[in-house]
Amino acid sequence: MLRHLIGTDMARKILWLRCRPGPLKDYYAVDYPTLDTPWSAVEFLAIDLETTGLNPEQDEIISIGYAPVRRGAVVFSESGHHLARPTRPVPEESAVIHGLLDRHLQAAPPLETVLPRVLRAMTGRVPVAHFADVERGFLDAACRRLLGHPLLVPYVDTLRIEKRVLERRQDAITRGALRLNAARERYNLPRYKAHDARLDAIGAGELFLAQVAHMDTKKPPRLEEVITG
């Protein structure tokens, strides 16, 4: 693994050199701030995907929602939501969760049209997701498949932060305790009922703000203290 040998920053620079001109090269052309930057000076992008399953190599992205987090605020006006038309029918068990059926997705553009827009939104921003393995795995796979190179970027994972908090407090982590809404409830955040990618992204962004506010650091936390990997 490239980045384990040379570090993420250097690996991103190499990827920028290797990419052909296009959305991914543009993405890599802008660096995000260094790890010692105070968190409030960093731009984040709360992001949430809906997929047809959990395996990035087999399953497909059908919906992407995001919202920037800037200077301590989730900015709705720059939030976005894209549907992507899958190549195969949506399995019933995942349609039950996100409520997206084939007919909703028939009119949507394919992922190759949507991905560059998402990369533009991600440019210069550190992604924030609840259980970021999904976003990391699927976006990386999509970039490899459609744009020829991996998507290498550190994530803030609000689920991992929450797990750390609960472990530190030595609370027993019960089943479901780390779900987005369960975590939000602990911070007196409202329960958003809808299950759509944009609202979930906003939800994760708000949870992130709450988690940072509750970190008992003397100074505002630096980027490396909120990044989880």
Binding site: G72, A73, V74, F76, S77, L189, A210
Partner: peptide, 14 residues
């Protein structure tokens, strides 16, 4: 209006 909002979080005592 909903689309123009920003969400902020403030801890007790702030």
């Amino acid at each position: 209006v909903a689309g123009k909002l920003e969400a902020r979080y403030a801890r007790q005592g702030k």
